[in-house]
Design a protein around this nucleic acid. Structure first.
Length: 609
DNA sequence: CTGGGGATGGGGCCC
DNA sequence: AGGGCCCCATCCCCA
């Protein structure tokens, strides 16, 4: 039987009539909103990600849709939404999101009261009429003009560049509790009509009739500690409120039509989120009525027919005479479980950073996979408690050889590692100190920002000199070895390559590439993953790595729905369906769908055993 | 049980 | 910055 508020409602609808004051819980809507906000702070059931500038916000589609026609249109087909950063900044959106969930305007991190001008702009853009009206009133009261919502950049929600997130500093933890807001210390700007006749503090309903079971907080909520859902909850760590990662994981991807939910998205709402990706870059303007700009679809399903045009220039497509008959689809489907198999993992741990040259790439750095989810499974990227990966448990191997690379899937390092990032819901977190290690000097720092600042102090020359010695000891052997194997060569022989590396023999066509290459001889890895702490030499590699954390797999196979983080993977994968085997062993005639498997095969021929 | 092949994930590097 | 391709590592299946 229904009970509680539902029962009451039902009675009213059913014609019980006589709906006296005692038949309606006046605080019901508040309690409901409070619950939703608390869930938001924990990432619980959040099913949409909003990207603003370099920040990621999580929210509930229903709430957004109920608040804004704009959002309603967007969330219909997208799980990941990028907002026009010219219209709304991450800071302003933080306030707006808080407003949506609380009906109050909180000062956020602004020193003073909210900037109603920028808020008005954003509210107009996001089609939040009530908020816009509130802003207009405040502006009017303040005697400020607010003619056009779209004002100059000075009035934009976008903060000065100097205040914006550095792209290098990938993660910026933001808390729905708006920092101090978690403590309920903010003088809130409350929307009068939105709150109706709420004289009582918005959250001060704990002393109401306890029979309202729905109001039972998920975490301790003290009296009128507004929004305290994120304050005292769980472990009290701010991480509990952590909601957004300042990731710029935007990625250009082909637009894809929405499709049905896919198999790999099951219970994990996070993975659902992560599986979709908005087609437009974060900074790209998003027409208020467009829901199509993205190719993402809910639930990240076996989505949309993938645009395989991009594969045309791949070796696969250059093949002639391939059968084109799917041969292994069945077998392939059996492997779909792999999609999520490795996702749920232990909390991120800090890996020791090993300078390149000592063992491949930072090898020793094990990256617990699925820290942020990535795939399906019970443990979401941001949310639920982590489950140790089986691979991790079994993986007691040392970090030699590429553990840094495969570590992300293979698992973890030693137990008791420090946790860099703690998704909401993690009960234990240990931010050991100095978790971010500068590779060149091995100095540790408590935050990536500090590490980044420190890295800047290393001059390239200094790094280079320091590295030179190490390199001469043979640290580059692995690469050279690999070079022999693959023998690319053709490209090397053709055009003039006047720019020669001063360390190795490689030559390049342009100085920029040479410079990029020479950096590989330095041990500096200036791009840290703020989720797992792994360091990268190139920003692109790091952002790609981050996508794996978030499970952003924009490239879907239209045959089986399997998704990939890279176009090339999809191209590669499609040969499974087409049966094409472009790679042939010159020794035995064996054919392979993938070059890497051919190489592996060739090793069999050449290995002594 | 073992080895080989198929397939996939992640990182490095070059363009 | 992103795409493409290289590598290694790994898992699964099968003979």
């Amino acid at each position: 039987m229904v009970s509680g508020p539902l029962a009451l409602r039902w009675c009213v609808w059913g014609g019980c009539g006589d709906m006296g004051p005692d038949m309606e819980l006046p605080s019901h809507s508040k309690q409901l909103l409070l619950q939703l906000n608390q869930q938001r702070t924990k990432g619980f059931l959040c099913d949409v990600i909003i990207m603003v500038e370099n920040s990621i916000f999580r929210a509930h589609k229903n709430v957004l849709a109920a608040s804004s026609i704009y959002f309603k249109s967007l969330v219909l087909h997208d799980n990941l939404i990028s907002l026009d950063t010219d219209m709304v900044s991450s800071t302003v959106f933080q306030q707006i999101l808080d407003f949506i969930y609380t009906g109050k305007l909180l000062p956020s991190d602004q020193p003073s009261e909210p900037n109603f001008s920028t808020l008005l702009t954003a509210a107009s853009y996001l089609q939040l009429p009530e908020l816009a009206a509130l802003c207009r009133r405040r502006l009017k009261r303040a005697g400020k003009p607010f003619g056009s919502a779209r004002v100059g950049t000075a009035g934009m929600g976008r903060p000065p560049r100097s205040q914006r997130l550095s792209t290098t500093s990938v993660i910026q933890a933001r808390y729905p509790g708006h920092g101090d807001g978690c403590k309920g210390a903010h003088p809130a700007q409350e929307l009068p009509q939105a709150k109706g006749s709420d004289d009582e503090p918005f959250l001060s309903t704990s002393n109401q009739d306890g029979a309202h079971s729905l109001s039972r907080p998920l975490c301790p909520v003290g009296g009128e500690a507004g929004l305290s859902g994120c304050s005292g909850n769980t472990n009290g760590s701010s991480g509990a409120c952590e909601q957004e990662l300042g990731l710029d994981l935007s990625k250009k991807s082909p637009p894809l039509p929405p499709t049905t939910p896919g198999p790999h998205l099951t219970s994990d709402d996070l993975s659902q989120l992560s599986d979709s990706q908005h087609g437009s870059p974060p900074s790209a303007p998003v027409p208020p009525v467009a829901n199509s700009a993205s190719y993402a679809e809910l639930g990240g399903a076996p989505e949309e027919p993938m645009d395989l045009e991009g594969a045309e220039d791949t070796p696969l497509n250059r093949l002639e005479g391939s059968s084109g008959q799917p041969r292994k689809s069945l077998r392939h489907s059996a492997r779909k479980k792999d999609w999520s198999k490795k996702e749920p993992c232990a909390p991120l741990e800090r890996k020791e950073v090993v300078p390149k040259g000592e063992e491949g790439e930072g090898l020793g750095n094990r990256v617990p996979n699925g820290v942020l989810g990535g795939g399906s499974g019970p443990s979401g990227p941001f949310g639920e408690p982590p489950y140790p990966c089986k691979e991790e448990e079994e993986n007691g191997k040392d970090g030699s050889e590429d553990s840094g690379q495969s570590g992300s899937e293979a698992g973890s390092g030693p137990a008791g590692a420090h946790y860099l990032y703690r998704p909401e819901g993690y009960e234990t977190v240990s931010y050991g100190d100095n978790l971010y290690v500068c590779i060149p000097c091995a100095k540790g720092f408590p935050s990536s920002e500090q590490l980044n600042a420190h890295v800047e102090t290393h001059t390239e020359e200094e790094l280079f000199i320091k590295e030179e010695g190490a390199y001469e000891t043979g640290s580059g052997g692995a690469e050279e070895e690999a070079e022999d194997l693959s023998a690319p060569s053709s490209a090397y022989a053709a055009e003039p390559r006047p720019f020669k590396c001063s360390v190795c023999e490689k030559t390049y066509k342009d100085p920029a590439t040479l410079r990029q290459h020479e950096k590989t001889h330095w041990l500096t890895r200036p791009f840290p993953c703020n989720i797992c702490g792994k360091m990268f030499t190139q920003r692109g590699t790091m952002t790609r790595h981050m996508r794996s954390h978030l499970g952003l797999k924009p490239f879907a196979c239209d045959e089986c729905g399997m998704r990939f983080t890279r176009q090339y993977r999809l191209t590669e994968h499609m040969r499974v369906h087409s049966g094409e085997k472009p790679y042939e062993c010159q020794l035995c005639g064996g054919k392979f769908t993938q070059q890497r498997n051919l190489i592996s095969h060739l090793r069999m021929h050449t290995s002594p055993s």
